[in-house]
């Protein structure tokens, strides 16, 4: 028998703590596969953020360091500036990146840091039990927007990919989704392109991956994929927002 598909050596053998059906696991798998397929696992240092993926340093099969909440892009900057020939990525959720860590990701992009940011957008704070995030949709109920997000009180959602793509230091920005298998294949293509951008030293790359949170959305895993497709994609259109190719 020929092996068609098996677990990537880009991930460790440790089972993840993520809730059943949480697409964090799919995104982890894809990052692991890209690192393994590019044969850069031994040259990569990952920066784990704080949120559901705080334990990601136990799952990626490469050197990992744990950043304070929101500060992963700064930690990654410190690493990449010292080791420019190594690959450096951050893995962050929407609370970590778009709320407390907004300054760090914007300035890392503006500086054109040659790092790759994996930005998982599930429109909610997962680890702490379902609070509103900057990417929570209008009308979306969370424990801190119990009546549904109201723009007059809690303001409007933030579209990170569009915003970061306006920064000249940003080289490759794409938003993708995990709501079905064909789109999951696109997530992998995008993440691969981001690491290739880093490899060529073109500049800052960020892939925004729409993701589910069955537990805190209060929807079962399969329906969560549907909910994401029908509600999040309209608010967060998929696509490539920046691709400046090789600099002359």
């Amino acid at each position: 028998m020929i092996t068609v598909y098996e677990k990537t050596k880009g991930l460790t053998d440790k089972p993840t703590h993520y809730c059943p059906g949480c697409t964090h696991g799919i995104i982890h798998r894809i990052v692991g596969e890209v690192l393994a397929e590019m044969d850069i696992l031994e040259d990569t240092i990952g920066v784990a953020s704080v949120g559901c993926s705080v334990l990601s340093y136990e799952y990626f099969n490469c050197d990992m360091t744990q950043a304070a909440h929101g500060r992963a892009p700064a930690v990654a900057t410190g690493i990449k500036r010292v080791l420019p020939d190594r690959f450096v990525f951050t893995y962050q959720g929407d609370g970590d990146l778009a709320s407390i860590g907004m300054s760090e990701v914007i300035h890392a992009a503006a500086r054109g840091e040659k790092i790759t940011v994996i930005f998982v957008n599930n429109a909610i704070y997962g680890m702490t039990g379902g609070q509103m995030a900057p990417t929570t949709l209008i009308g979306q109920k969370t424990v801190t927007s119990p009546e549904g997000r109201n723009p007059n009180i809690q303001g409007m959602p933030i579209r990170i990919s569009e915003m970061i793509s306006t920064l000249d230091g940003a080289a490759y920005i794409e938003r993708v989704s995990t709501h079905d298998v064909p789109h999951i294949a696109k997530v992998k293509k995008a993440i691969r392109k981001a690491f290739e951008t880093q490899k060529k030293g073109i500049g800052f790359s960020l892939i925004e991956v729409l993701s589910t949170c069955p537990t805190n959305w209060g929807i079962d895993p399969i329906e969560s994929l549907e909910w994401m497709k029908n509600n999040m994609i309209p608010a967060y259109p998929l696509g490539v927002y920046k691709n400046i190719g090789e600099r002359e």
Binding site: Y5, K7, T16, I26, D180, I184
Partner: peptide, 18 residues
């Protein structure tokens, strides 16, 4: 291998005959 691609926990290994 669609099952393996959407599995969040890398539970599934897929083979095909020669």
């Amino acid at each position: 291998a669609k099952c393996a691609q959407i599995c969040p926990d890398s539970v599934i290994t897929v083979y095909r005959p020669e």
